[in-house]
């Protein structure tokens, strides 16, 4: 089943009248076609201003599309808002979105009440979620004193109070230390195993590669590509790659002339990469390199980061519009 389906989705923001008196607007989503299959973790990658958060806001029903259609589990976000809200949980990164003067337990009680849970279910769900995100021991402490990682765990628990079929994670690991971020990814994997659908927006390529079944690269409000993170590499290069160490460069002579070898590049002093067009050529190159004493051999495909930079471009600090 399709969890999310957007067709020709467009969202513009009114910027008021310009100097010439004409209405100015910025296009955040530009006739976006987008689909997420149920039970998958779908990554949304793109630079700042690409339209990722706008899409999440529309799916969370806090923003209306300007035109086009979006359905969540078959429910239109405009005409069947209540049904969509019952099936979606929202988690965004950062410090805000929690009641800092309440304890973790009180926060969850509150949100469970807003989702209409009867008292007994409310108590049980709260305890289950606190245990799940590892906050049971700290559940009676005010959120004010929580670390960023603990707040993010509580954010995730809050996003799950309604037992959502679709979880929107908008840059959820922002500011987390590596250990907390790893734990968070493990939780995401658990949620996927339960059959939940997860839409994850992130700038973190490693995170997207680690947890996503499919990734959509988005820029300027348009989807540039949607693929499995590993398959996305083929958009940049269909070649296989062998990387190796050869401190004295003894392994290099004759490599470029081998059948099927299309490039030999230096990655860093003593570290090289050979690109081949076919598996047979790769085997021959590996055999030769081993004979010549090359070490640290690995075969690779273009990573997500490389694909991202290739398709979206390296903009430095520039923010897209």
């Amino acid at each position: 089943m399709t969890a999310v389906e957007a067709v020709a989705l467009r969202r513009t923001y009114d910027l008021g009248r310009g100097r010439g008196g004409g209405q100015r607007e910025v296009v955040a989503l530009h006739a976006l076609d987008f689909r997420v299959d149920e039970g998958t973790v779908h990554g949304l990658l793109g630079p700042n201003g690409a339209g990722k958060t706008t899409l999440c806001k529309i799916l969370a029903t806090v923003l209306l599309p300007t035109s086009g259609g979006v359905r969540v589990f078959g429910n239109d976000v405009v005409s069947r808002t209540r049904q969509v809200r019952q099936s979606v949980g929202v988690v965004f990164g950062g410090e805000r979105g929690l009641y800092s003067r309440l304890t973790a337990r009180q926060n969850l009680h509150y949100w469970c009440a807003l989702y209409g849970l009867p008292r007994r279910a409310l108590l049980a769900r709260t305890e289950m979620l606190l245990a799940r995100v590892g906050l049971s021991e700290r559940s009676d402490e005010k959120v004010d004193g929580f670390s960023r990682g603990m707040k993010q765990r509580l954010h995730l628990a809050r996003g799950l109070v309604g037992d959502p079929r679709l979880l929107l994670l908008d840059e959820p690991t922002t500011g987390m230390d590596p250990v907390a971020a790893r734990d968070f990814r493990l939780l995401v994997a658990e949620l996927r195993a339960e059959g939940r659908t997860i839409l994850l927006t992130t700038h973190d390529m490693a995170e997207a590669e680690a947890v996503c079944d499919r990734v959509t690269l988005i820029d300027g409000g348009r989807a540039l590509a949607t693929e499995h993170p590993r398959a996305l590499g083929a958009l940049v290069s269909r070649n296989e790659r062998i990387e190796f160490d050869s401190p004295t460069a003894d392994a290099l002579p004759g490599l470029p002339a081998l059948p099927g070898v299309v490039a030999v590049t230096t990655l860093s002093p003593g570290r090289y990469r050979v690109e081949t067009t076919a598996t047979e050529a790769t085997k021959a190159v590996i055999g030769l390199l081993l004979d010549r004493g090359a070490t640290s051999l690995t075969t690779t495909r273009p990573g997500l980061e490389e694909v991202y930079l290739k398709l979206i471009g390296n903009r430095g600090m520039e923010v897209g519009r």
Binding site: A60, T61, R85, L98, L114, G116
Partner: peptide, 12 residues
Amino acid sequence: AGTLPLLVASPA
């Protein structure tokens, strides 16, 4: 507190 969009997104 940053809770306003979450309140709007809830069924309440």
